[in-house]
Write a protein that binds this DNA or RNA. Sequence first.
DNA 1: TTTTTTTATTAAACATGTTTATTTAGGGCA
DNA 2: TGCCCTAAATAAACATGTTTAATAAAAAAA
Lengths: 199, 199
Amino acid sequence: MGRRDDTKAETRELILNSARDMFWEKGVEKCTIRDIADAAGVSAASVIVHFKNKTALLEAALSDDLEQALGQIIATLPAGKGLQDVLFHMVSYMLTFYDKNRELYRILIRDTLYQPVQDIPSIAMLEEQHFQFLTNLIEHEKEEGRVRLTIDSRVATAALYSLYIGILRNFLRDPALSVQKTMEQLAVTLEQYLSGIAV
Amino acid sequence: MGRRDDTKAETRELILNSARDMFWEKGVEKCTIRDIADAAGVSAASVIVHFKNKTALLEAALSDDLEQALGQIIATLPAGKGLQDVLFHMVSYMLTFYDKNRELYRILIRDTLYQPVQDIPSIAMLEEQHFQFLTNLIEHEKEEGRVRLTIDSRVATAALYSLYIGILRNFLRDPALSVQKTMEQLAVTLEQYLSGIAV
DNA sequence: TTTTTTTATTAAACATGTTTATTTAGGGCA
DNA sequence: TGCCCTAAATAAACATGTTTAATAAAAAAA
């Protein structure tokens, strides 16, 4: 790591900071790479050299905060509570987080959810962590005798995650939908999922 | 409806047909509005006059086939079967349908799933039909005594749809994932959802 | 130290989605 | 028929993400 690598890392940070600010304030579609480059004091070409494309820049600019959020969720986990309470805690935290700038996160999720994993390394890693955490949680619930032992934890994780994503979609698409109302939707959905719908 | 309206409708069809062909063959990102316009024998500006933007054109170009698929699904429904069989039939049909050009439908879904309803009228309507059909199905299952009467059908519908979308996401993101393997994933997920995971 | 190579950076060019201003032709009316 | 009005169509311009070719400075080699 000589001086060249240092200044490269500095430039990267400059771009990242400008991007975060401008995406946040003006919105992704309203602010151009040239805007961000100017604010960072570099050329537009330099932005692309560092980040490949605008979506990659968006991902990089927001993933730090997302990672911190996930860390906070885990740090503030209600101790000794069951699956339902933990999931409530997680979703409630994330909705409140996204609610600070719904439009921004709508774009982020739209532009990353259906991309190949290699195109969105940071988000993919966060998702994997999220998954792992949920799987452990379910395994723990099994040990506590609150989830049936025959349940495949990975499948249940994927299902819970899908339900979460579905609810999040409504939340991000409809600005009129409050965090509270969305949490109520989650409650009913989760209750159904835990006890099953069949007679 | 004089000749002016006729030619307008004709132009629209010309564009739509070219778009369908070129999107299908070259992929959405690889073919430009100018390409489509040239193939249709109109100007690029005309394409935008008719369709507002590229995503709207994509939606319009593919929604006819999607509507037909949904019609086929309902027409070929296994008679007298329960929820599980009907859902299998639907998902199996849709996966086989999307499998004909996974990349194309990946883009379509990515670009529409998180858009406001008014931006994707055709897809939104199809989704609503799909929803209504599922809700009726669940209501019917209640009458047959196969689903508990206390279950909120709309919530159950939304949950089933979310599970489907989650599975579809894996399918569209991973070209190596076969229809068969995906259907197996659905089977386990559905089994869990019907009987619940709690002890 | 001098020369060569590598690479971070950028200005300029390019590609393509979209907008704007203009042209053209159909539909109604005297 | 001749005139106006409306709207479909388009050429040209524009905006912006991205690529390319050139520059300059650090690192490596001599």
